[in-house]
Design a protein around this nucleic acid. Structure first.
Lengths: 144, 144
DNA sequence: CTCAAACAGGACACCGTAGTCCAATTTAGC
DNA sequence: GCTAAATTGGACTACGGTGTCCTGTTTGAG
């Protein structure tokens, strides 16, 4: 349902948020268990979207740009692989314009519920979540 | 988010439900604006799942098997392209077993909301929906 | 029995996503 | 200014989803 790239991007962003300091692609890759060369591409996308900032050279790496309470899961998803609502009837008939048929209105409502859920989850929410099993959390300091 | 195949399958099922009688793949394809050879494959999948019954030879075609009020959108989706919940942590760490981390619990909740919405929409609901713009509805009798 | 209608199934082409690899470029520190 | 660290970008492969085509098989009707 969600692409691999989105999954990787979210893991990376959570990791970078916990770090608070620049981390190299290699460090992020190891901590989040993602193939480093591919993660590199995903992070480039996040950089283009302004979600992370990249710094080359010694001591460089990737840093999260927005404050965690200002960055939502939806922001990350849309930066990597925008989730598309059903705007108009997928059939050729554009006479129906804005209004959707019974079927596609239901499908779009499901999309909307996902969108809303993602918009209402900030990175800060995720970080603050008290959960006994915290895979990404336990890895946060692995690069220290 | 949802695959083309799912979209095609749902259009076909709605059309067949309205028809109530066998319709050939060609008829379904034209009414739902789907490439016929590909729709053929999708319908084969629905047949294997028991959602439609196929009859060869003259006067044959595809017929919807379940009563529309017993068939949900979720049934169709799962027959074609099962939407997968996040069961366990996608990271290598299976020590966490059932419990999901804060991030993946949120992602899975979004999946669950979609699943629930689809499970609560029967074909009968879709058919009965009074909507001024009814693309698929207006096509229901095009094969008569 | 024969023929035409209709589905079944396999082979193939196309394209986007996932993933790898390597050369080029920027940059901090000695 | 040289070197090592680090990102950037392009080229490449692999694979699955989408879509086409063609042959075979079933089946009803004359």
């Amino acid at each position: 349902m969600l692409s691999q790239s989105v999954e990787y991007a979210l893991r990376a962003v959570v990791f970078l948020a916990r770090a608070g300091e620049p981390r190299t692609t290699a460090q992020v890759a190891e901590a989040t268990q993602v193939p480093a060369p591919y993660l590199s591409k995903v992070l480039q996308g996040l950089a283009r979207a302004g979600i992370v900032r990249s710094q080359r050279g010694v001591g460089g790496g990737m840093t999260l740009v927005p404050k965690p309470d200002k960055l939502t899961i939806l922001d990350v998803v849309n930066a990597v692989d925008p989730l598309q609502r059903i705007e108009s009837c997928p059939l050729g008939l554009r006479e129906h314009g804005v209004k959707l048929c019974a079927l596609h209105r239901r499908l779009d409502n499901a999309m909307k519920s996902v969108e809303d859920a993602f918009r209402n989850s900030t990175l800060a929410d995720v970080l603050a979540d008290p959960n006994p099993s915290v895979p990404l959390g336990s890895l946060a300091d692995s690069a220290e």
